[in-house]
Amino acid sequence: MSVSAKDINEQTPWQLLTPGGEIYEGGTARLTLTGQWRSDRPVWDPAACKQCLLCVPFCPDSSIPVTDKRRADFDYDHCKGCGICWKVCPFQAIRMEKEGRP
């Protein structure tokens, strides 16, 4: 039996899940939005940012997307608000704020 992670959700009956919760493809963490766990939120200041990209490899959750050697705004669907990027940024281009609750 092979089931794609995208075909499984919280309505899927047990008979259609994979044994032991095995996952048969890569990159499926993207499908699971874990950003709600965050209590603090990093805020990026593009004007102060020098695009040195030091924050990128430090992020434990790959939540700083990079295209063409330039970082973009945070991936808040997966950022946990740990503040490591804020700590390592040499140019104070990241500040931490309390996560607002809608």
């Binding site: 499984i8 919280e10 899927t12 009956p13 047990w14 899940l17 044994p19 032991g20 919760g21 095995e22 996952i23 048969y24 493809e25 890569g26 499926t28």
Partner: peptide
């Protein structure tokens, strides 16, 4: 050729289902 992840963290909406599967096995 196909990837596989074994023993992932099992969140609440799925963990009981996996235990039922084991019981059936």
């Amino acid at each position: 050729d196909t990837p596989l992840a074994v023993g992932p963290y099992d969140t609440c909406p799925f963990c009981m289902e996996h235990k039922v599967m084991l019981a059936e096995a």
